[in-house]
Write a protein that binds this DNA or RNA. Structure first.
Lengths: 247, 247
DNA sequence: CGATACGTTGATCCATTTCAAGATTGGTGG
DNA sequence: CCACCAATCTTGAAATGGATCAACGTATCG
């Protein structure tokens, strides 16, 4: 699980799969990730409707799923290092949204042909990948619940708290401060509000001593207060499970 | 694919998997669904946090994923016949929300042990199941986009249009009218608004000649108008793909 | 040093919430 | 079959969060 042995996938292994994978499965996983490359800020990895023969694995940085229709842009979900960003393109082929980097990012690609091999020869690893896509859906569901029930400040608090928790789980963060290269306008596009209102919400969180967002960096000032505002209950991230092991 | 040969799973086969499954795979699928039973309205199938050794397959009726925390209830997603309602519990084990029936429903159960067997011996079928859970996530994403960008009437229009499209895809509907056993309060819980406001939105749709919701039955009066209000683009349902076939 | 993206602020308007009350419906027992 | 109850639906009025429009301040970078 060290970053030397598994330079590309160690965060995935750490964040999700823990210790239940064999050494062999871990190295199969590491070998799946190919064509590693460095991307700049705001680069589009895929666009809506495009057909692809490989899935994108995020090694470092942030990638978001973005909807762009008739001029308006929405950010549907945000990915942290160690995430498969579009694993669903394996089964779905077409992709239903754009994929773009926020800040510089390092990604690798997993060819669908190789995933076929995993499906037939490595059922346990396949199940771990399935776990990852189910976790993705669970994160979507939680976000639906928050968009339904919370106002903009609660949504922003949730976003901050969730990203922080996910970064921590993959050891991509140490303290209560982390780089997060979204502008206020993009935060608004994530929370389903307007840039103007998001500006006020950001200020409110700062004034209340909960969190400070400035220069594309988030500093958590009061984690408990934030979690309370977001009604955050991290069960849906499935991080403390002993791990989905089957006999 | 007939309802005689595959009495439990034919809607699943029709709606999602089409013709790319072998006769053998189809009957393996049919045999997976066991302990079929009829449930009454408002029955809870599972509750948040419970650990389960089997997943629920919806044969007839509606089941929703429901969040109930400190008195407030939210409806996260709605399932139609032919859906796996909690396939994610296979990989995740614990479930992050409640599952309850709306109206009477017939469900069957798929044991996780048997899914293990599918994973090892039927990789193609496993891939089809994975497809189903990815589709689920795509539906979540679309709902996120709608909650972010549309007001309550647009959300309701989307809900109606999506459910209609999904029911049509599994041949559970013929005309522009279908039973949908949610009260206005429950529609509000789905769209993230209040019962009072939902009442006004329902009336508005009726007055505009778009749709009529009464006595737990939805009649679509102007499908195009509804779709326009919802900015509906059914690509995310992946219904017209030739099918995810791999060489 | 000017261009351009980003952040900030004020004023007004509208969708939605909230509180409160009344009408309708469906189901149940007498 | 009617009376009654509980759930559901409906309506009004007042309060509010957020959208919108418009302007101005402030980084940042070639």
């Amino acid at each position: 699980m060290s970053s030397e042995t598994y330079p590309n996938t160690w965060r995935f292994l750490k964040g999700r799969v823990r210790d239940s994978m064999s050494r062999n499965e871990k190295s199969v996983m590491e070998d799946l990730v190919q064509d590693v490359c460095q991307l700049g800020h705001g680069e589009k990895i895929l666009t809506r409707g495009s057909v692809t023969q490989r899935s994108t694995f995020l090694i470092e940085g942030f990638v978001a799923r973005v909807n762009e229709r008739d001029g308006k842009r929405q950010i549907i979900s945000i990915h942290v290092p160690g995430d498969f960003v579009d694993l669903h393109s394996y089964a779905l082929k077409k992709i239903d949204h754009d994929l773009m980097t926020f800040g510089t990012a390092r990604v690798g690609y997993v060819s669908h042909v190789n995933l076929d091999v995993v499906m037939t020869r490595e059922p346990k690893l396949a199940r771990h990948l399935w776990f990852a896509s189910h976790l993705d859906a669970a994160i979507h569901r939680e976000w639906i619940a928050k968009l339904q029930s919370l106002s903009a400040d609660g949504c922003l608090a949730h976003l901050i708290t969730e990203v922080h928790a996910r970064l921590k789980a993959v050891a991509a963060i140490e303290h209560n401060s982390f780089a997060f290269p979204l502008t206020q306008t993009e935060l608004a596009e994530t929370c389903g509000t307007t840039p103007v209102h998001m500006n006020r919400v950001v200020r409110k969180l700062r004034e209340q001593g909960l969190a400070d967002i400035s220069r594309k960096k988030i500093t958590i000032l009061d984690a408990e207060g934030l979690a309370a505002l977001a009604q955050f209950d991290m069960g849906y991230l499935y991080q403390n499970l002993p791990e989905p092991v089957r006999a």
